[in-house]
Write a protein that binds this DNA or RNA. Structure first.
Length: 533
RNA sequence: GCCUCCGUAGCUCAGUUGGAUAGAGCAGGGAACUUCUAAUUCCAAGGUCGCAGGUUCAAUUCCUGCCGGAGGCGCCA
């Protein structure tokens, strides 16, 4: 709203000065408070084309705007090489508070970037033959949060996970279960993990090890994900594609488009036509399918259901992205509509000591172990604190501590404090009265204004985080808001001797707006908003 | 050899289409509670943004080349 007021005013001012306004006028928040609330570099950007000195153009622009002040603007000045800085009246923040309260948790910072575009977010996609392990955790938390961001910004989101429930690995899994059931060692290439023995003990004597084991693994995945509040709309079975024949359909469609050829008895995809460094086998010379063939059929299927596909894959799959995009292009899809996000690895530590993950022996840290150790909220928050582009190190002991080293408690504590203060206010006879009867102009303390300024950035932060697929930006914002709140709490009493009843009312509404902001932040990263701690 | 990601304070990391004096947490130093949760707040200190070029009014940001770290390049899944 305020941005529109300012850009319109700048555009009008430039026109009045006989300067052609640029197509987009960028407004940014200066890093330093003394540079005002908003700033534009439009003078620097247009000076050359207008044949003017940037500083002079900026000065003229600032003088014009200062003489013809837009709504909420208290002063306009020029600084540095030609930046035009806007200083706003506090009233714009009071207006903002009213808007936040009116829109509430459901609608504040809810945007419509997607305009209902359907997007399929595929993540986790773990093999259904073992419990989810620590390696799945980052992608799980990330994928779900990205889905939440897309949902809040106007996309029709489907959360989906792929079940690789046929083939060699499932056979080995079944053999391993059957062997343990009989008290024998699993086959050489089979699964050695302790969970195999545990599951074999649970398995009825007359059960089919493959089917029973598959169901057992799925139940395990569901239970774990449920603990962190992650729920899939679709659990897509690879096996179902064999039964429905869509894999053959996909292969024949590729064949019709002349995107395959036969060599050495195998069927190959001409992926080099679309930027891959070599062609890829789809059907092996023995007639078996490679992993790629059903995966192509799967993505083809997803495109029949959603306009955009977003895959969250681990770093070990990145070599796979080019061939999958090539395959989709071969099928006539826009490769840009298939977005593949690679999440880098996570190293686990305890007190600085590396916790080794050993695949061969099957001694892995499970996702459940992590949740047991640090709790669901701390796990999600910590995994999302950092960009998935960088390798992450998590010290489990640090994350488990309920202390100030741990940002998740810092932010949740702010939320709990708000509830505590509101309860105290009610106890002292200060029920919150309707907003219309409240004089928000009493909110003039620097801490109060800082809190509102922080809240004002949430919509743009949500937009940024959604577009960049960057939940960590939301975490960063939440930490800032919490810091602004703790500062306010320290210096501004809501109820107390020196506080008038009117100011108490205004501050109670400020608390409500803050609570809304925190709750939205928590929701976007899937962390609970505790009322007491 | 090719591909992807990373390199910013002692440590862990931010840094939004290139902007003004590069930020935060932790660790270490110094302060602050007669009242709403001290799981708090405030102050100071801490930087050749891996290196070298290029693009321009302006580069941590974009381009090129190096150096260093991680991962990936199968008729495995």
């Amino acid at each position: 709203m305020i941005v529109t007021i300012l850009t319109d005013a700048i555009s009008a001012a430039l026109t009045a000065m006989d300067v052609e306004p640029p197509a987009t006028i960028t407004l940014e928040r200066p890093a330093r408070r003394e540079h005002g609330d908003w700033s534009t570099n439009v003078a620097l950007a247009t000076a050359k084309a207008a044949g003017k000195n940037p500083r002079e153009l900026g000065t003229g622009l600032a003088e014009y705007l200062d003489a013809n002040k837009p709504e909420f603007v208290s002063a306009v000045d020029v600084a540095g090489p030609g930046f035009v800085n806007f200083h706003l009246e506090d009233a714009w923040l009071h207006r903002l508070l009213e808007e936040i309260v009116a829109q509430g948790e459901a609608n504040f910072a809810r945007l419509d970037i997607g305009q209902g575009t359907s997007v399929n977010v595929e993540f986790v996609s773990a093999n259904p033959n073992k419990p989810l392990h620590a390696g799945h955790a980052r992608g799980a938390c990330y994928g779900d949060s990205v889905a939440r961001l897309l949902d809040r910004t106007g996309y029709a989101v489907t959360r989906e996970t792929y079940l690789n429930d046929r083939g060699v690995q499932m056979g080995l899994f079944a053999e391993s279960l059957a062997a343990r059931k009989k008290g024998e060692e699993p086959p050489e290439e089979g699964y050695q993990g302790a969970y195999i023995s545990e599951w074999a003990d649970e398995m009825p004597d007359d059960a089919d090890p493959l089917e029973w084991g598959y169901a057992r693994a799925l139940a395990s995945h569901r239970a774990t994900l449920d603990r962190v509040g992650i729920h899939f709309d679709v659990w897509f079975s690879e096996r179902s594609m064999v039964e429905s024949g869509v894999i053959e359909e996909a292969l024949s469609e590729l064949g019709e488009k002349n995107m395959t050829f036969v060599d050495d008895g195998a069927t190959w995809l001409r992926s080099t036509d679309y930027g891959d460094d070599k062609d890829r086998v789809l059907v092996k010379s023995d007639g078996d399918l490679t992993y790629l063939a059903p995966d192509i059929a799967y993505h083809r299927d997803k495109f029949s259901r959603s306009a955009k596909l977003l895959n969250v894959w681990g770093a070990d799959h990145h070599g796979y992205t080019v061939r999958m995009k090539a395959a989709m292009q071969a099928l006539g899809h826009d490769p840009d509509e298939l977005e593949i996000i690679i999440t880098q690895l996570v190293d686990l530590e305890r007190d600085g000591e590396e916790v080794r993950m050993s695949g061969r022996s099957g001694n892995f840290i499970s996702f459940d172990d992590i949740i047991d150790e640090v709790g669901a909220d701390a796990a999600r928050f910590t995994y999302l604190m950092q960009s998935v582009d960088s390798r992450q190190t998590i010290d489990l002991n640090l994350v488990a501590t309920k202390a100030m080293d741990n940002p998740v408690y810092y932010v949740q504590y702010a939320h709990a404090r708000i509830h505590s203060v509101v309860a105290k206010a009610i106890e002292a006879g200060h029920e919150r009265k309707p907003l219309a009867e409240t004089d928000l102009s009493l909110l003039t303390h620097e801490r109060e204004l800082a809190l509102l300024r922080s809240l004002s950035t949430l919509p743009e932060m949500v937009e940024y985080a959604a577009k960049e697929r960057a939940p960590h930006a939301i975490i960063g914002w939440s930490r800032e808001l919490a810091a602004a709140f703790h500062g306010f709490y320290q210096e501004c009493y809501v109820v107390g001797d020196g506080v008038s009843a009117e100011l108490t009312q205004a501050r109670l509404w400020l608390l409500e707006a803050t609570r809304i902001g925190l709750a939205i932040g928590f929701d976007l990263v899937g962390v609970s908003a505790p009322e007491s701690m």
